[in-house]
């Protein structure tokens, strides 16, 4: 399967969409760092999980004692 991401194309577009300005001098490093994440994510997304696998992050409503 072809890599769904071309980080060199995606990074500047996504940065603009969320209001980030990436300095030209940093663009190569950011693209490289994002490519690492994309590679890792592609492997991760290929792990099939049943719907009933509930995320580990648990939200516990604050009872007022915390902050």
């Amino acid at each position: 399967m072809a890599d769904p991401f071309d980080p060199a194309h995606y990074v500047p577009e996504a940065a603009a969409a969320v209001g980030l300005t990436i300095a030209p001098a940093d663009l190569g490093d950011v693209t490289q760092a994002f490519a690492v994440l994309a590679r890792v994510a592609a492997q991760l997304m290929a792990i099939p999980l049943p719907e009933e696998t509930i995320a580990a992050a648990v939200f516990i409503p604050d009872d007022g004692a915390g902050r």
Binding site: Y10, V11, A14, A15, V18, L20, I22, D26, V30, A33, F34, V36, L37, A41, L44, M45, I47, L49, T53, I54, A55, A56, A57
Partner: peptide, 19 residues
């Protein structure tokens, strides 16, 4: 900066992978 650009589905899936 790279982390700020990661799609949300990656994060949500990573949390389910964790479980």
């Amino acid at each position: 900066l790279a982390g700020a650009l990661a799609p949300g589905v990656w994060y949500a899936h990573a949390q389910r992978v964790r479980r």
